[in-house]
Amino acid sequence: MRSSLALTATAALVALALTGCTAPAPEPLATSGASSDAIEVTGKLGANPRVDFPTPVSPKATQCTEVIAGDGERLVEGQQALIGLSVYNGSTGEELQAPTGFTDSEDAIPIVLGGNTLPGLLKGLSCGSVGSRVAVVIPPADAFGDEGNQSIGVGPDDSLVVVYDVRQAFLTRADGAVRPSRDGFPAVVLAPDGRPGITVPKTDPQKSTQVEVLKEGSGQVVESGDRVVVHYTGVLWDDNSVFDSTWEKGAPASFVVSDGSDSQVIPGFSEAIIGQKVGSQIGVIVPPSDGYGDQEQAGIPAGSTLFFVIDILGVVE
């Protein structure tokens, strides 16, 4: 890639693992209670919420209350979502993060539910679905613990109040129908969590980009100029070594794919994705002419043929 494109979230309150797409969605990791029900949130979706609550709010466990009901399945661990977010000190009422990402005029905050997320925020996010607005109250044990976080104004005994909207959510892995690959194409075997294991054949690669649909999805078709969310692993053809993997980083990547100069990835990567459907898994052999050419790039030797396995998780709206 031309740059590090792993999605990130903001501040000390966000960030990432995996679930299968065929299993039923698990129950949320938190439920409503007196503390979360006491958070008064007004305003419509698409506008910044107005938040009021009595202080101090001191729950014994993380609680969540769905203020506006969403549709579809709840968010799960390993999933990336785009959210609007506001955060308050539950003990003092102080605003720690002003409402961000709630309106169409603002970019939503990308967040991946997982091991690097504050435990209470992870629990609270599991209560949401696309189109929902949720109020979450987080005790110190599920926030910053006995040390607090003085840099953002949170003491060791302070709870957090979080209000978020789920504006969009993406697949955790490709969920399309499996298709057989041609003879001589690299072999791909998936781990239970979806990450690919790749074996490149000991043959000379072809000189042009070769695209193979390993799983055929049924979602939106990716067009030139779209910003996509993907998981991918890239290996060198010569020695089958992994040079880049979002799976290893613990979060999907997001970038613009294009057949023009606005593309944020190498031409072969864009060619593999444009015209494919969300939910698909794509294998692509990228020769140097559609990759990095005769220049060494971030540990990739000059003149390298590359092979990627790409899960298309969604298109950013």
Rank of each mutant, 00 (worst) to 15 (best):
D71C: 09
T42V: 08
T19K: 11
V136A: 04
S58T: 15
L113Y: 07
P301S: 07
A6T: 14
T203G: 04
I310T: 02
V137H: 02
T19N: 09
Q206N: 14
S105T: 14
A15Q: 01
A108E: 01
K202M: 13
T22H: 15
V161F: 02
Q80G: 08
Q220T: 15
L121G: 00
F144M: 13
S241N: 13
G155P: 11
P24W: 11
Q80L: 13
P56N: 08
L190V: 07
V136G: 03
P180A: 11
V134T: 14
I83A: 03
K60N: 15
M1W: 07
A187H: 10
T233A: 10
G197N: 14
P99N: 05
D52F: 08
K202D: 14
S3Q: 09
D157W: 08
T31A: 15
S105F: 14
S151T: 14
G70Y: 03
A169N: 11
D311H: 11
L190I: 01
N116A: 11
L82Q: 03
L118R: 09
A302G: 10
D107C: 07
K277S: 12
G93K: 10
I300H: 03
V229R: 07
F243A: 02
G84W: 01
V163Q: 07
F308P: 00
Y88F: 15
V154Q: 06
K215A: 13
F269C: 05
V228I: 15
V188M: 03
S86C: 13
V242N: 01
A135I: 05
D259S: 12
K202Y: 05
R195V: 01
G155N: 11
R179W: 06
I273L: 11
A30C: 15
A143N: 11
A98W: 09
V222Y: 02
L85V: 04
T172A: 02
S245I: 03
V163S: 04
G225H: 07
G279Q: 04
G101D: 06
D290M: 09
T172P: 00
E271L: 12
S218L: 10
A11L: 13
K202C: 06
L45F: 01
G260W: 12
A30R: 06
T10S: 09
P49D: 05
L82A: 11
F308I: 02
G120P: 07
I274W: 03
V163G: 05
I300C: 03
F185L: 09
G90R: 06
D183C: 06
F144D: 01
G131K: 07
I273N: 00
V178E: 15
P24D: 13
T42G: 09
Q80R: 10
G155H: 13
D290L: 11
N48Q: 12
V229K: 02
S132T: 04
G101H: 06
